[in-house]
Protein backbone atom coordinates (compact mmCIF):
# COMPACT_ATOMS: atom_id res chain seq x y z
CA UNK A 1 0.00 0.00 0.00
CA UNK A 2 1.52 3.34 -1.03
CA UNK A 3 1.04 6.10 1.51
CA UNK A 4 1.30 9.62 0.18
CA UNK A 5 2.73 11.98 2.71
CA UNK A 6 4.51 15.27 3.08
CA UNK A 7 8.22 15.46 3.72
CA UNK A 8 8.80 16.62 7.26
CA UNK A 9 11.71 18.49 8.71
CA UNK A 10 13.08 17.79 12.15
CA UNK A 11 13.44 21.15 13.83
CA UNK A 12 16.54 22.29 15.63
CA UNK A 13 14.68 21.73 18.86
CA UNK A 14 14.97 18.15 19.90
CA UNK A 15 11.45 16.86 19.44
CA UNK A 16 9.76 19.04 16.86
CA UNK A 17 8.76 18.04 13.35
CA UNK A 18 7.57 20.58 10.81
CA UNK A 19 5.84 20.08 7.50
CA UNK A 20 3.75 22.05 5.06
CA UNK A 21 0.29 21.08 3.93
CA UNK A 22 -0.48 22.33 0.44
CA UNK A 23 -3.90 22.52 -1.12
CA UNK A 24 -6.85 24.73 -1.92
CA UNK A 25 -6.30 26.76 1.25
CA UNK A 26 -2.70 27.42 0.35
CA UNK A 27 0.47 26.46 2.17
CA UNK A 28 -0.07 25.76 5.86
CA UNK A 29 2.76 25.03 8.24
CA UNK A 30 2.08 22.24 10.71
CA UNK A 31 4.17 21.40 13.76
CA UNK A 32 4.30 18.12 15.68
CA UNK A 33 5.62 18.08 19.24
CA UNK A 34 6.85 15.12 21.27
CA UNK A 35 7.32 16.45 24.82
CA UNK A 36 8.51 14.39 27.77
CA UNK A 37 5.95 14.87 30.52
CA UNK A 38 7.22 12.09 32.76
CA UNK A 39 10.39 10.05 32.43
CA UNK A 40 10.05 8.06 29.21
CA UNK A 41 6.51 9.25 28.57
CA UNK A 42 5.95 11.75 25.81
CA UNK A 43 2.91 13.75 24.84
CA UNK A 44 2.19 13.90 21.11
CA UNK A 45 0.55 17.10 19.94
CA UNK A 46 0.28 18.82 16.62
CA UNK A 47 -1.41 21.80 15.10
CA UNK A 48 -1.32 24.50 12.49
CA UNK A 49 0.80 27.61 12.71
CA UNK A 50 -1.51 30.61 12.69
CA UNK A 51 0.20 32.82 10.15
CA UNK A 52 -1.21 35.96 11.77
CA UNK A 53 -0.04 35.26 15.31
CA UNK A 54 2.73 32.72 14.77
CA UNK A 55 1.14 30.54 17.45
CA UNK A 56 -0.15 26.98 17.20
CA UNK A 57 -3.72 25.76 17.31
CA UNK A 58 -5.57 22.66 16.20
CA UNK A 59 -9.14 23.79 16.68
CA UNK A 60 -9.30 25.38 13.26
CA UNK A 61 -10.07 23.08 10.37
CA UNK A 62 -7.57 24.17 7.76
CA UNK A 63 -9.31 21.85 5.29
CA UNK A 64 -6.69 21.54 2.61
CA UNK A 65 -8.34 18.33 1.38
CA UNK A 66 -5.32 16.32 2.42
CA UNK A 67 -6.41 14.69 5.65
CA UNK A 68 -5.01 11.25 4.85
CA UNK A 69 -1.72 12.73 3.71
CA UNK A 70 -1.44 14.73 6.93
CA UNK A 71 -2.20 11.62 9.01
CA UNK A 72 0.42 9.64 7.10
CA UNK A 73 2.94 12.41 7.73
CA UNK A 74 2.20 12.42 11.46
CA UNK A 75 2.54 8.63 11.43
CA UNK A 76 5.92 9.03 9.76
CA UNK A 77 7.03 11.41 12.46
CA UNK A 78 5.89 8.92 15.11
CA UNK A 79 7.91 6.13 13.52
CA UNK A 80 10.94 8.38 13.25
CA UNK A 81 10.61 9.48 16.87
CA UNK A 82 10.15 5.92 18.11
CA UNK A 83 13.22 4.87 16.14
CA UNK A 84 15.20 7.36 18.20
CA UNK A 85 13.34 6.55 21.43
CA UNK A 86 12.46 2.82 21.29
CA UNK A 87 11.57 2.67 24.96
CA UNK A 88 9.24 5.65 24.87
CA UNK A 89 5.54 5.65 25.58
CA UNK A 90 3.45 8.16 23.64
CA UNK A 91 0.24 9.75 24.88
CA UNK A 92 -2.09 11.46 22.41
CA UNK A 93 -5.41 13.23 22.80
CA UNK A 94 -7.12 15.67 20.46
CA UNK A 95 -8.13 19.14 21.59
CA UNK A 96 -11.72 18.24 20.74
CA UNK A 97 -13.63 14.93 20.47
CA UNK A 98 -13.69 15.41 16.70
CA UNK A 99 -9.93 15.78 16.63
CA UNK A 100 -9.52 12.65 18.78
CA UNK A 101 -11.77 10.77 16.36
CA UNK A 102 -9.41 11.88 13.60
CA UNK A 103 -6.50 10.28 15.44
CA UNK A 104 -8.64 7.17 15.93
CA UNK A 105 -9.47 7.05 12.23
CA UNK A 106 -5.77 7.21 11.44
CA UNK A 107 -4.95 4.36 13.79
CA UNK A 108 -7.83 2.25 12.45
CA UNK A 109 -6.86 2.90 8.84
CA UNK A 110 -3.32 1.64 9.33
CA UNK A 111 -4.10 -0.84 12.10
CA UNK A 112 -2.94 -3.97 10.32
CA UNK A 113 0.50 -2.50 9.83
CA UNK A 114 0.70 -0.59 13.10
CA UNK A 115 -0.29 -3.54 15.28
CA UNK A 116 2.64 -5.61 13.97
CA UNK A 117 5.14 -3.40 15.75
CA UNK A 118 3.22 -1.24 18.21
CA UNK A 119 1.01 -1.79 21.19
CA UNK A 120 -1.82 0.74 21.54
CA UNK A 121 -4.24 1.32 24.39
CA UNK A 122 -7.33 3.49 24.21
CA UNK A 123 -8.93 5.32 27.14
CA UNK A 124 -12.70 5.01 27.35
CA UNK A 125 -15.32 5.00 30.11
CA UNK A 126 -12.83 5.69 32.84
CA UNK A 127 -10.22 3.07 31.97
CA UNK A 128 -7.52 1.91 29.59
CA UNK A 129 -8.06 -1.06 27.30
CA UNK A 130 -6.30 -2.54 24.25
CA UNK A 131 -7.22 -0.67 21.08
CA UNK A 132 -9.94 -2.29 19.00
CA UNK A 133 -11.30 -1.04 15.70
CA UNK A 134 -14.87 0.17 15.93
CA UNK A 135 -14.57 1.33 19.55
CA UNK A 136 -14.48 5.02 20.49
CA UNK A 137 -11.72 6.34 22.72
CA UNK A 138 -10.84 9.60 24.41
CA UNK A 139 -7.06 9.29 24.23
CA UNK A 140 -4.32 6.83 23.30
CA UNK A 141 -1.08 5.29 24.50
CA UNK A 142 1.47 3.83 22.11
CA UNK A 143 4.70 1.89 22.58
CA UNK A 144 6.87 -0.48 20.59
CA UNK A 145 6.05 -4.13 21.29
Amino acid sequence: MHLEKYDFIKGPEKHYYHFFSEGSKGRIEKVIEFFEIHTGIFNLAFGDVDEKTGHINDTVASNNDDRDKVLATVAGAVFDFMDDHPGAILYAEGSTPARTRLYQMGISKFWDEISEDFKIEGFAKGGWKPFAKGENYESFLLKIK
Binding site: L3, G76, F110
Partner: peptide, 29 residues
Protein backbone atom coordinates in the same frame (compact mmCIF):
# COMPACT_ATOMS: atom_id res chain seq x y z
CA UNK B 1 3.66 0.67 4.13
CA UNK B 2 5.26 1.82 7.37
CA UNK B 3 8.69 1.75 5.76
CA UNK B 4 7.38 3.95 3.00
CA UNK B 5 6.05 6.44 5.50
CA UNK B 6 9.40 6.53 7.23
CA UNK B 7 11.14 7.53 4.04
CA UNK B 8 9.77 11.04 4.31
CA UNK B 9 12.28 12.47 6.72
CA UNK B 10 14.76 15.08 5.75
CA UNK B 11 17.68 16.53 7.58
CA UNK B 12 17.14 20.18 8.43
CA UNK B 13 19.14 22.65 6.37
CA UNK B 14 20.69 25.83 7.68
CA UNK B 15 18.14 28.02 5.90
CA UNK B 16 15.17 26.06 7.14
CA UNK B 17 16.47 25.95 10.70
CA UNK B 18 16.70 29.71 10.78
CA UNK B 19 13.08 29.95 9.74
CA UNK B 20 11.73 27.44 12.24
CA UNK B 21 10.39 28.99 15.40
CA UNK B 22 10.86 27.48 18.84
CA UNK B 23 7.45 26.38 20.09
CA UNK B 24 8.59 25.25 23.52
CA UNK B 25 6.69 28.13 25.17
CA UNK B 26 3.71 28.07 22.84
CA UNK B 27 0.46 28.29 24.82
CA UNK B 28 -1.24 25.54 22.79
CA UNK B 29 1.52 23.00 23.36
Amino acid sequence: ALKQVKKGKKKPTANLESELKDYTNDAFF
